[in-house]
C-alpha cells in the first residue's frame, strides 16, 4: 500500500496541532477494569483522523511539567452526537507507580488539563481506503483502533456488511476488555466484522475464545484467508506485543508496508 493518501499535507488539523489547548472533562468512567475513559471538550478542536493521538501536559503548583501521549478513542464525528458534546475521548491505563496516569484517573467533570493535537500522520485510517481492515490490539492498544472501528461502523450507515474487518484483541483477563458492550453491539450489527479475543491469564471455564498468547496458528486461522486481498493492518499495544504481532503478520506473508504499528512503551 502506498502512503500517498494519508500524508499530513492534506491534514487540515496540522497547523492547529502545535498549540496547547485547555481541555475540560465532560465525563469520566471506567472503559475496562484497568482503563479510564475520559471525555474532554476542547474549544477550538480542529477535528482528527482515526488513529491519531494527543499530547497531555500537567503542571504542578511549583511549575514542574510532565508530558505524555494518549491515543484518541472517539470517531471525529462523535463530538456532540449524543449527550453532552465532547471532542476528544481518551482511554488511560492505570500504571500504579506512574506519574501522569494516576492523576488523570482522579479527574472530575469540570476539571481542566492542557493538551495539544491531533498528532500523527502514519498510524491513521480512513473509510476511503478500500481494502479490508485488520486491527490487532494488546490491552489498552485497543484505544486508537476503536476510533477506526467507530468510523467504520458509521460508514456502514445501517447496512449489515460492506467491508471485511477483523479485530484481534489480546488481554490478560476479560475484565480488561475495553468498550465491551459497544463491541458486542457492533458485532451484532456488522456481519462482515469478526472480533477475536484471546485471554492470556485465567480464562473462565466457560470461555469460548482463545486462551493463549497470539501465535502463528491463531493468525493463520483468523487472517489467512485475507492474504490475497491486501488488507490495511494496524497493530497497537505494548512494545513486546507489537513486535510479536508484527513479526507473525510478516511471517504469514502480509506486505510489510501494509502493516502500521503504534507502540505505547512498557
Amino acid at each position: 500500500m502506498s502512503d500517498t493518501h494519508i500524508g499530513s499535507r492534506n491534514n487540515p488539523a496540522k497547523s492547529e496541532g502545535a498549540k496547547w489547548k485547555e481541555a475540560r472533562v465532560v465525563s469520566i468512567g471506567k472503559a475496562a477494569s484497568n482503563v479510564m475513559g475520559i471525555r474532554f471538550a476542547v474549544p477550538g478542536w480542529p477535528g482528527h483522523k482515526a488513529g491519531q493521538h494527543v499530547d497531555v501536559r500537567l503542571t504542578a503548583p511549583g511549575g514542574y511539567m510532565a508530558e505524555r501521549s494518549y491515543s484518541i478513542a472517539n470517531a471525529p464525528r462523535d463530538a456532540g452526537a449524543s449527550g453532552e458534546p465532547y471532542d476528544v475521548e481518551l482511554g488511560v491505563e492505570l500504571l500504579e507507580d506512574g506519574e501522569v496516569s494516576p492523576y488523570l484517573w482522579q479527574l472530575k467533570p469540570g476539571d481542566a488539563i492542557e493538551l495539544r493535537g491531533p498528532i500523527g500522520g502514519h498510524f491513521i485510517w480512513d473509510t476511503a481506503m478500500p481494502d479490508p481492515l485488520v486491527l490487532v490490539a494488546g490491552g489498552a492498544g485497543m484505544v486508537p483502533l476503536m476510533s477506526m472501528l467507530r468510523i467504520h461502523m458509521d460508514s456502514l450507515n445501517g447496512r449489515e456488511a460492506g467491508r471485511e474487518a477483523v479485530f484481534i484483541i489480546s488481554l490478560r483477563t476479560i475484565d480488561r476488555l475495553l468498550y465491551a458492550d459497544e463491541l458486542a453491539d457492533m458485532q451484532k450489527k456488522d456481519k462482515d466484522l469478526k472480533i477475536v479475543i484471546t485471554l492470556t491469564e485465567n480464562a473462565p471455564a466457560d470461555w469460548a475464545g482463545y486462551s493463549k498468547r497470539i501465535d502463528a496458528e491463531m493468525f493463520e486461522k483468523e487472517l489467512g484467508r485475507l492474504k490475497g486481498s491486501m488488507p490495511d493492518i494496524y497493530v497497537c499495544g505494548p512494545t513486546k506485543f507489537v513486535e510479536a504481532a508484527a513479526g507473525l503478520l510478516v511471517a504469514l506473508g502480509f506486505n510489510t508496508h501494509s502493516i502500521r504499528t503504534e507502540r505505547f512503551g512498557g
Partner: peptide, 17 residues
Amino acid sequence: PGQYEETGFPVLSLGPT
C-alpha cells in the same frame, strides 16, 4: 523540555522490524 528519563530502551518504528 517535556521529556522524562527512561531506564529501559523502548522501541519506536513505523511498522514491523
